[in-house]
């Protein structure tokens, strides 16, 4: 189960429309103090999405990008980047993936 963090609300988790080719992933509200916690909350509702964004070791896939507000994610392994209340987390496909 994802860790629920009281009083820490994520504004929106937004996903590139290119994911819609493969599975439904509408913009959702999720809770968490870090990118990892936010994503875990999203995956709890949409478990198939996890393997699209994270690799076998639960690290961010090499050709997936995440922005927290206007900041690119730095911790691609631990996904420990902090998420402030009401910040949006944007998930993009990186151009490096072709």
């Amino acid at each position: 189960m994802p860790e629920q963090v009281e009083g820490c609300a994520l504004g929106r988790g937004w996903f590139t429309s290119n994911l819609e080719r493969h599975l439904s992933c509408p913009t959702v509200e999720a809770r968490g103090r870090t990118v990892r916690q936010v994503l875990d909350a999203v995956f709890a509702e949409n478990p198939r999405l996890k393997a699209y964004l994270l690799d076998d070791q639960d690290c961010l896939r090499r050709h997936v990008n995440i922005f927290i507000g206007d900041r690119p994610v730095e911790d691609r392994t631990g996904l420990g980047d902090p998420v402030s209340p009401d910040e949006d987390v944007h998930v993009f496909q990186a151009l490096s993936g072709g």
Binding site: H22, A51, Y52, L53, R61, V64, Q93, G97
Partner: peptide, 8 residues
């Protein structure tokens, strides 16, 4: 072998 989203 999706370029961005891995093996399916």
């Amino acid at each position: 072998r999706l370029g961005h989203f891995g093996v399916k």
